[in-house]
Nucleic acid binder design. Structure first.
Ligand SMILES: [Mn+2]
Ligand SMILES: [Mn+2]
Ligand SMILES: [Zn+2]
Ligand SMILES: [Zn+2]
Lengths: 153, 153
DNA sequence: CTCTATCCGATAATGAGTATCATTACCAAC
DNA sequence: GTTGGTAATGATACTCATTATCGGATAGAG
Protein backbone atom coordinates (compact mmCIF):
# COMPACT_ATOMS: atom_id res chain seq x y z
CA UNK A 1 0.00 0.00 0.00
CA UNK A 2 2.90 2.34 -0.56
CA UNK A 3 1.83 3.28 -4.08
CA UNK A 4 0.97 6.86 -4.82
CA UNK A 5 -2.68 7.42 -5.65
CA UNK A 6 -3.66 8.62 -9.13
CA UNK A 7 -1.25 11.40 -10.02
CA UNK A 8 2.47 11.89 -9.43
CA UNK A 9 3.31 14.68 -7.08
CA UNK A 10 6.73 14.63 -5.46
CA UNK A 11 5.49 14.16 -1.90
CA UNK A 12 3.19 17.14 -1.42
CA UNK A 13 4.59 19.24 1.43
CA UNK A 14 2.44 18.80 4.49
CA UNK A 15 0.37 21.68 5.74
CA UNK A 16 2.46 21.95 8.91
CA UNK A 17 5.59 22.45 6.83
CA UNK A 18 3.87 25.23 4.97
CA UNK A 19 2.72 26.73 8.27
CA UNK A 20 6.21 26.43 9.75
CA UNK A 21 7.67 28.36 6.85
CA UNK A 22 5.06 31.08 7.06
CA UNK A 23 5.70 31.41 10.79
CA UNK A 24 9.47 31.66 10.56
CA UNK A 25 9.14 34.05 7.63
CA UNK A 26 7.19 36.23 10.03
CA UNK A 27 9.93 36.00 12.68
CA UNK A 28 8.11 33.61 14.97
CA UNK A 29 10.08 31.03 16.86
CA UNK A 30 9.71 27.31 16.84
CA UNK A 31 8.95 25.78 20.19
CA UNK A 32 7.75 22.52 21.64
CA UNK A 33 4.27 23.87 22.37
CA UNK A 34 3.83 25.38 18.95
CA UNK A 35 5.15 22.31 17.17
CA UNK A 36 2.76 20.14 19.10
CA UNK A 37 -0.20 22.29 18.04
CA UNK A 38 0.91 22.28 14.43
CA UNK A 39 1.28 18.51 14.46
CA UNK A 40 -2.12 18.06 16.08
CA UNK A 41 -3.77 20.28 13.49
CA UNK A 42 -1.99 18.47 10.69
CA UNK A 43 -3.18 15.09 11.85
CA UNK A 44 -6.85 15.90 12.34
CA UNK A 45 -9.41 14.96 9.73
CA UNK A 46 -11.80 17.83 10.40
CA UNK A 47 -12.13 20.75 12.77
CA UNK A 48 -11.17 20.51 16.45
CA UNK A 49 -11.55 22.86 19.39
CA UNK A 50 -8.71 24.30 21.44
CA UNK A 51 -9.55 21.99 24.30
CA UNK A 52 -9.72 18.94 22.07
CA UNK A 53 -6.35 19.80 20.61
CA UNK A 54 -4.92 20.34 24.06
CA UNK A 55 -6.33 17.06 25.31
CA UNK A 56 -4.89 15.13 22.38
CA UNK A 57 -1.45 16.67 22.89
CA UNK A 58 -1.28 16.04 26.62
CA UNK A 59 -2.55 12.49 26.20
CA UNK A 60 0.49 11.91 24.02
CA UNK A 61 2.64 12.68 27.06
CA UNK A 62 3.66 16.20 26.12
CA UNK A 63 2.79 18.73 28.81
CA UNK A 64 1.67 22.03 27.35
CA UNK A 65 -0.39 24.89 28.71
CA UNK A 66 -3.87 25.54 27.38
CA UNK A 67 -2.96 29.20 26.96
CA UNK A 68 -0.31 28.24 24.43
CA UNK A 69 -2.90 26.37 22.40
CA UNK A 70 -5.17 29.41 22.31
CA UNK A 71 -2.24 31.68 21.51
CA UNK A 72 -1.01 29.51 18.68
CA UNK A 73 -4.48 29.17 17.22
CA UNK A 74 -4.94 32.92 17.33
CA UNK A 75 -1.60 33.43 15.63
CA UNK A 76 -2.32 30.89 12.92
CA UNK A 77 -5.78 32.28 12.34
CA UNK A 78 -4.39 35.78 11.99
CA UNK A 79 -2.06 34.50 9.29
CA UNK A 80 -4.94 32.67 7.60
CA UNK A 81 -3.15 29.37 8.13
CA UNK A 82 -6.17 27.85 9.82
CA UNK A 83 -9.90 28.29 9.36
CA UNK A 84 -12.27 28.88 12.22
CA UNK A 85 -15.43 26.83 12.15
CA UNK A 86 -18.36 27.95 14.26
CA UNK A 87 -20.97 25.24 14.75
CA UNK A 88 -23.11 27.38 17.03
CA UNK A 89 -22.43 25.62 20.33
CA UNK A 90 -20.25 28.40 21.65
CA UNK A 91 -17.01 26.57 20.92
CA UNK A 92 -14.63 27.66 18.19
CA UNK A 93 -13.10 24.88 16.13
CA UNK A 94 -10.16 25.10 13.79
CA UNK A 95 -8.76 23.20 10.86
CA UNK A 96 -5.78 23.67 8.55
CA UNK A 97 -6.27 26.08 5.66
CA UNK A 98 -4.49 24.61 2.67
CA UNK A 99 -2.53 27.09 0.58
CA UNK A 100 -4.09 25.93 -2.69
CA UNK A 101 -7.52 26.97 -1.48
CA UNK A 102 -8.73 23.42 -1.11
CA UNK A 103 -11.34 23.31 1.61
CA UNK A 104 -14.62 21.79 2.63
CA UNK A 105 -17.79 22.72 4.45
CA UNK A 106 -19.78 21.14 7.23
CA UNK A 107 -22.93 19.25 7.95
CA UNK A 108 -23.95 19.75 11.58
CA UNK A 109 -26.39 17.42 13.29
CA UNK A 110 -28.82 19.33 15.48
CA UNK A 111 -29.46 16.22 17.55
CA UNK A 112 -26.04 14.81 18.43
CA UNK A 113 -23.79 17.67 17.40
CA UNK A 114 -21.79 15.53 14.99
CA UNK A 115 -19.90 17.42 12.32
CA UNK A 116 -19.28 15.93 8.88
CA UNK A 117 -17.38 17.45 6.00
CA UNK A 118 -18.56 17.79 2.42
CA UNK A 119 -17.40 19.43 -0.74
CA UNK A 120 -19.41 20.46 -3.76
CA UNK A 121 -18.07 22.12 -6.86
CA UNK A 122 -21.36 23.60 -8.01
CA UNK A 123 -21.91 25.20 -4.63
CA UNK A 124 -18.45 26.71 -4.81
CA UNK A 125 -19.23 28.11 -8.24
CA UNK A 126 -22.48 29.61 -6.98
CA UNK A 127 -20.66 31.19 -4.05
CA UNK A 128 -18.08 32.78 -6.30
CA UNK A 129 -20.80 34.10 -8.58
CA UNK A 130 -22.56 35.73 -5.64
CA UNK A 131 -19.30 37.19 -4.42
CA UNK A 132 -18.97 39.07 -7.71
CA UNK A 133 -22.57 40.19 -7.70
CA UNK A 134 -22.42 41.84 -4.29
CA UNK A 135 -21.06 45.22 -3.19
CA UNK A 136 -18.55 43.75 -0.77
CA UNK A 137 -15.06 42.37 -1.09
CA UNK A 138 -15.51 38.72 -0.21
CA UNK A 139 -12.42 36.97 1.13
CA UNK A 140 -13.96 33.83 2.54
CA UNK A 141 -17.21 32.01 2.99
CA UNK A 142 -18.66 29.94 5.79
CA UNK A 143 -21.31 27.40 4.97
CA UNK A 144 -22.99 24.97 7.32
CA UNK A 145 -25.91 22.72 6.53
CA UNK A 146 -27.89 21.81 9.60
CA UNK A 147 -30.24 18.92 10.15
CA UNK A 148 -30.04 15.28 11.16
CA UNK A 149 -27.21 12.89 10.47
CA UNK A 150 -27.91 9.35 9.29
CA UNK A 151 -27.83 7.92 12.81
CA UNK A 152 -30.14 10.54 14.28
CA UNK A 153 -32.65 10.62 11.45
CA UNK B 1 -46.91 57.06 0.83
CA UNK B 2 -49.63 54.69 1.94
CA UNK B 3 -49.76 52.85 -1.39
CA UNK B 4 -49.03 49.15 -1.41
CA UNK B 5 -45.87 48.24 -3.29
CA UNK B 6 -46.14 46.11 -6.42
CA UNK B 7 -48.62 43.35 -5.63
CA UNK B 8 -51.87 43.30 -3.66
CA UNK B 9 -51.75 41.31 -0.51
CA UNK B 10 -54.37 42.07 2.12
CA UNK B 11 -51.97 43.49 4.74
CA UNK B 12 -49.54 40.64 5.28
CA UNK B 13 -49.75 39.61 8.94
CA UNK B 14 -46.65 40.76 10.77
CA UNK B 15 -44.17 38.19 11.95
CA UNK B 16 -44.95 38.93 15.60
CA UNK B 17 -48.61 38.10 14.99
CA UNK B 18 -47.58 34.80 13.50
CA UNK B 19 -45.26 34.16 16.43
CA UNK B 20 -47.96 35.07 18.92
CA UNK B 21 -50.31 32.54 17.38
CA UNK B 22 -47.69 29.81 17.38
CA UNK B 23 -46.92 30.53 21.03
CA UNK B 24 -50.51 30.47 22.24
CA UNK B 25 -51.16 27.35 20.16
CA UNK B 26 -48.38 25.80 22.21
CA UNK B 27 -50.01 26.92 25.47
CA UNK B 28 -47.57 29.70 26.17
CA UNK B 29 -48.85 32.85 27.76
CA UNK B 30 -48.55 36.39 26.62
CA UNK B 31 -46.68 38.65 28.99
CA UNK B 32 -45.15 42.09 29.03
CA UNK B 33 -41.62 40.77 28.82
CA UNK B 34 -42.39 38.41 25.99
CA UNK B 35 -44.37 40.99 24.05
CA UNK B 36 -41.51 43.40 24.34
CA UNK B 37 -39.08 40.85 22.92
CA UNK B 38 -41.45 39.99 20.08
CA UNK B 39 -41.93 43.66 19.24
CA UNK B 40 -38.19 44.26 19.33
CA UNK B 41 -37.54 41.35 17.01
CA UNK B 42 -40.29 42.47 14.67
CA UNK B 43 -38.89 45.96 14.39
CA UNK B 44 -35.26 45.07 13.71
CA UNK B 45 -33.89 45.14 10.19
CA UNK B 46 -31.38 42.35 10.69
CA UNK B 47 -30.07 40.15 13.47
CA UNK B 48 -29.60 41.43 17.03
CA UNK B 49 -28.05 39.91 20.14
CA UNK B 50 -29.87 39.24 23.39
CA UNK B 51 -28.11 42.13 25.02
CA UNK B 52 -28.90 44.50 22.18
CA UNK B 53 -32.55 43.50 22.34
CA UNK B 54 -32.57 43.97 26.10
CA UNK B 55 -30.91 47.37 25.80
CA UNK B 56 -33.40 48.55 23.22
CA UNK B 57 -36.36 47.43 25.32
CA UNK B 58 -35.17 48.99 28.55
CA UNK B 59 -34.26 52.23 26.79
CA UNK B 60 -37.91 52.44 25.81
CA UNK B 61 -38.77 52.64 29.52
CA UNK B 62 -39.91 49.06 29.94
CA UNK B 63 -38.02 47.25 32.70
CA UNK B 64 -37.42 43.61 31.86
CA UNK B 65 -34.86 41.08 33.08
CA UNK B 66 -32.10 39.91 30.78
CA UNK B 67 -33.00 36.34 31.72
CA UNK B 68 -36.42 36.78 30.17
CA UNK B 69 -34.83 37.86 26.93
CA UNK B 70 -32.63 34.78 26.84
CA UNK B 71 -35.56 32.56 27.77
CA UNK B 72 -37.83 34.01 25.13
CA UNK B 73 -35.17 33.73 22.47
CA UNK B 74 -34.56 30.11 23.41
CA UNK B 75 -38.27 29.38 23.26
CA UNK B 76 -38.71 31.07 19.90
CA UNK B 77 -35.66 29.35 18.50
CA UNK B 78 -36.95 25.98 19.66
CA UNK B 79 -40.15 26.64 17.75
CA UNK B 80 -38.16 27.77 14.69
CA UNK B 81 -39.76 31.20 14.92
CA UNK B 82 -36.39 32.92 14.93
CA UNK B 83 -33.08 32.13 13.28
CA UNK B 84 -29.81 32.19 15.10
CA UNK B 85 -27.01 33.96 13.29
CA UNK B 86 -23.45 33.27 14.34
CA UNK B 87 -21.03 35.86 13.09
CA UNK B 88 -18.06 34.31 14.85
CA UNK B 89 -17.52 36.86 17.60
CA UNK B 90 -18.92 34.60 20.29
CA UNK B 91 -22.25 36.41 20.42
CA UNK B 92 -25.45 34.79 19.19
CA UNK B 93 -27.75 37.02 17.18
CA UNK B 94 -31.33 36.37 16.24
CA UNK B 95 -33.79 37.52 13.63
CA UNK B 96 -37.39 36.63 12.79
CA UNK B 97 -37.91 33.49 10.70
CA UNK B 98 -40.71 34.17 8.27
CA UNK B 99 -43.20 31.34 7.82
CA UNK B 100 -42.99 31.42 4.03
CA UNK B 101 -39.32 30.51 4.16
CA UNK B 102 -38.21 33.94 3.04
CA UNK B 103 -34.81 34.63 4.47
CA UNK B 104 -31.47 36.19 3.75
CA UNK B 105 -27.82 35.60 4.49
CA UNK B 106 -25.03 37.78 5.76
CA UNK B 107 -21.95 39.61 4.70
CA UNK B 108 -19.67 40.09 7.69
CA UNK B 109 -16.89 42.68 7.64
CA UNK B 110 -13.73 41.33 9.24
CA UNK B 111 -12.52 44.85 9.96
CA UNK B 112 -15.43 46.65 11.60
CA UNK B 113 -17.78 43.74 12.32
CA UNK B 114 -20.62 45.23 10.30
CA UNK B 115 -23.27 42.77 9.17
CA UNK B 116 -25.18 43.27 5.92
CA UNK B 117 -27.91 41.12 4.49
CA UNK B 118 -28.11 39.72 1.00
CA UNK B 119 -30.28 37.30 -0.93
CA UNK B 120 -29.48 35.34 -4.03
CA UNK B 121 -31.78 32.95 -5.82
CA UNK B 122 -29.07 31.03 -7.62
CA UNK B 123 -27.23 30.42 -4.39
CA UNK B 124 -30.43 29.10 -2.84
CA UNK B 125 -30.89 26.75 -5.76
CA UNK B 126 -27.34 25.49 -5.42
CA UNK B 127 -27.84 24.91 -1.71
CA UNK B 128 -30.99 22.89 -2.30
CA UNK B 129 -29.23 20.83 -4.95
CA UNK B 130 -26.42 20.00 -2.53
CA UNK B 131 -28.90 19.12 0.16
CA UNK B 132 -30.31 16.41 -2.09
CA UNK B 133 -26.89 15.16 -3.09
CA UNK B 134 -25.69 14.56 0.43
CA UNK B 135 -26.36 11.70 2.88
CA UNK B 136 -27.87 13.91 5.53
CA UNK B 137 -31.32 15.34 6.15
CA UNK B 138 -30.79 19.07 5.70
CA UNK B 139 -33.26 21.29 7.55
CA UNK B 140 -31.49 24.61 7.33
CA UNK B 141 -28.41 26.30 6.02
CA UNK B 142 -26.15 28.98 7.40
CA UNK B 143 -24.12 31.04 4.98
CA UNK B 144 -21.84 33.93 5.74
CA UNK B 145 -19.54 35.71 3.34
CA UNK B 146 -16.61 37.35 5.07
CA UNK B 147 -14.40 40.14 3.87
CA UNK B 148 -14.40 43.92 3.82
CA UNK B 149 -17.40 46.18 3.56
CA UNK B 150 -17.37 49.18 1.25
CA UNK B 151 -16.22 51.57 3.98
CA UNK B 152 -13.40 49.33 5.22
CA UNK B 153 -12.12 48.33 1.80
C1' DC C 1 28.33 32.61 25.30
C1' DT C 2 25.35 36.53 25.86
C1' DC C 3 21.60 39.09 25.24
C1' DT C 4 16.97 40.01 24.25
C1' DA C 5 12.72 39.52 21.91
C1' DT C 6 9.66 36.02 22.03
C1' DC C 7 7.34 32.44 24.14
C1' DC C 8 5.95 29.64 28.02
C1' DG C 9 2.57 28.05 31.47
C1' DA C 10 0.02 29.04 35.77
C1' DT C 11 -3.55 31.60 37.11
C1' DA C 12 -6.79 35.49 37.41
C1' DA C 13 -10.21 38.00 34.93
C1' DT C 14 -13.80 38.43 31.57
C1' DG C 15 -18.18 37.78 29.69
C1' DA C 16 -21.91 35.26 27.25
C1' DG C 17 -25.00 32.19 28.36
C1' DT C 18 -27.52 28.93 31.78
C1' DA C 19 -29.54 27.23 36.15
C1' DT C 20 -31.89 28.20 40.28
C1' DC C 21 -35.50 29.82 43.03
C1' DA C 22 -38.67 32.63 45.43
C1' DT C 23 -42.20 35.56 43.75
C1' DT C 24 -45.76 37.03 40.56
C1' DA C 25 -49.22 36.71 36.76
C1' DC C 26 -52.46 34.18 34.22
C1' DC C 27 -56.52 31.38 33.58
C1' DA C 28 -59.90 27.94 33.99
C1' DA C 29 -62.87 25.83 37.24
C1' DC C 30 -65.43 26.13 41.15
C1' DG D 1 -64.58 36.38 43.39
C1' DT D 2 -61.68 32.82 45.18
C1' DT D 3 -58.68 29.23 44.46
C1' DG D 4 -55.33 26.15 42.68
C1' DG D 5 -52.33 24.79 39.05
C1' DT D 6 -49.12 26.19 35.86
C1' DA D 7 -46.14 29.29 33.42
C1' DA D 8 -43.35 33.42 33.53
C1' DT D 9 -40.57 36.75 35.86
C1' DG D 10 -36.25 38.79 37.45
C1' DA D 11 -32.40 38.72 40.68
C1' DT D 12 -28.57 36.24 41.21
C1' DA D 13 -25.25 32.46 41.36
C1' DC D 14 -23.01 29.65 38.40
C1' DT D 15 -20.54 27.44 34.25
C1' DC D 16 -17.17 27.46 31.10
C1' DA D 17 -14.77 29.09 26.80
C1' DT D 18 -11.71 32.49 25.96
C1' DT D 19 -8.52 36.40 27.10
C1' DA D 20 -5.26 39.04 29.90
C1' DT D 21 -1.46 39.11 33.00
C1' DC D 22 3.08 38.24 34.56
C1' DG D 23 7.33 36.25 36.18
C1' DG D 24 10.24 32.94 34.46
C1' DA D 25 12.24 30.08 30.40
C1' DT D 26 14.41 29.86 25.80
C1' DA D 27 15.35 30.22 20.99
C1' DG D 28 18.58 31.88 18.17
C1' DA D 29 21.14 35.91 16.17
C1' DG D 30 25.51 37.92 16.70
MN1 LIG E 1 -16.40 26.62 -0.25
MN1 LIG F 1 -30.66 30.61 1.95
ZN1 LIG G 1 -26.58 13.13 14.77
ZN1 LIG H 1 -16.41 47.16 7.69
Amino acid sequence: MSAEPHHHRPSAPSWSTHADEALSRRGSRASAARNAVLAALDSQACCASAQEIHARITTDGTAIGIASVYRTLELLHGLALITRVDTGDGVARYEPAHPNGEHHHHLVCNACGAVEAFHDGELEAAIHAVADRVDFRVDAHDIALRGACRRCR
